[in-house]
């Protein structure tokens, strides 16, 4: 057999190996999707009929058919709003500093390493920090404000890292163009770099806030209440949040509370998915406008 014939025989085997791997990869991909679909089906069959007017507008009750989600929804929305108000300016400012202004020295690289490491710290550790710092040291108590500030610290590294990526993706030629007409560094950043990075920054902010929306552990540690029969009115009020309420219901002895918990999960998922959808819309809309 000459070498070309050998090569042809091998080629068929190479194609077969390729197809085998393609199938394998497809199965792996499908596994993730199947899990999500199964989860959704299970939650929907269990809770869909429980998502009704009285559930969305009612307050906590020890009777499953009268249990309401409103304090948790309001609590979560209030917490996320405050978290955003605190974490976004601080996070974006830190990202701008690190990308556009920080000198390349040892201190900067220590800060950068720290921020990256903080992003990997488990959420419950932030809960302990919030308990020690906000609840105890600053005497803010087990309040809405303590919860929001704790979540703000939790998402800060994520916002910083993702915003830095967005700022770094702005082409250098744009900065040089602005500097070459006598702009200062700040004018260059404010008028050109930030607007160009805005879609990426907003995406990172929304993804970070949706993570905060789903966190239960740190809020449990700082003492979110599990039974809140009223709506929070001010920052110092005790509070509950959607994941906390869901967790509480799922731990209740009555079997029907499992269905209430599923209904809570559906509401939480709807809020999360609409936040993610907003991020995608922002990215696409801005992406089509800016091209280099």
């Amino acid at each position: 057999m000459n070498s070309l014939a050998v090569a042809d025989a091998q080629l068929a085997a190479r194609h077969r190996a390729g197809r085998r791997f393609e199938v394998l990869l497809w199965l792996m991909t499908a596994a993730g999707v199947v899990m999500l679909v199964l989860l959704l089906i299970q939650i929907l069959t269990q809770g869909a009929t429980w998502v009704r007017g009285s559930f969305l507008t009612g307050v906590a009750s020890i009777r499953p058919e009268r249990a309401g989600f409103l304090p948790a929804i309001v609590g979560s929305v209030a917490i996320i709003a405050i978290t955003g108000l605190v974490a976004v300016p601080v996070g974006v400012a830190a990202a701008v500093y690190l990308e556009e202004f920080a000198p390349r020295n040892r201190l900067t690289s220590i800060i950068e390493t720290n921020v990256s490491n903080l992003a990997g710290v488990p959420a419950i550790v932030y809960g302990l920090l919030g308990l020690a710092l906000f609840v105890r040291a600053l005497s803010l108590g087990r309040s809405l404000l303590s919860g929001a500030l704790t979540l703000a610290i939790l998402v800060l590294p994520t916002i910083i890292i993702a915003s830095r990526e967005a700022i770094r993706a702005v082409p250098q030629s744009l900065r040089l163009a602005a500097l070459a007409v006598g702009a200062t560094r700040w004018q260059t950043t404010w008028h050109h770099v930030l607007p160009a990075a805005l879609p990426g920054v907003l995406t990172s902010v929304i993804l970070a806030l949706s993570r905060a929306l789903g966190e239960a552990a740190p809020l449990l540690v700082i003492g979110a209440a599990s039974y809140v029969p009223f709506l929070p009115r001010k920052l110092s009020d005790s509070f509950t949040a959607m994941p906390i309420q869901i967790y509480t219901w799922s731990a209740m002895p009555q079997a029907q509370f499992q269905n209430v918990a599923a209904a809570g999960i559906i509401v939480l998922l709807v809020v999360l998915l609409s936040m993610n959808a907003t991020a995608i819309i922002i990215r696409q809309r801005a992406g089509s406008k800016l091209k280099w």
Partner: peptide
Amino acid sequence: MVFQKPNPFP
């Protein structure tokens, strides 16, 4: 200054 690749502001 005028650069190698045209870089008008967006």
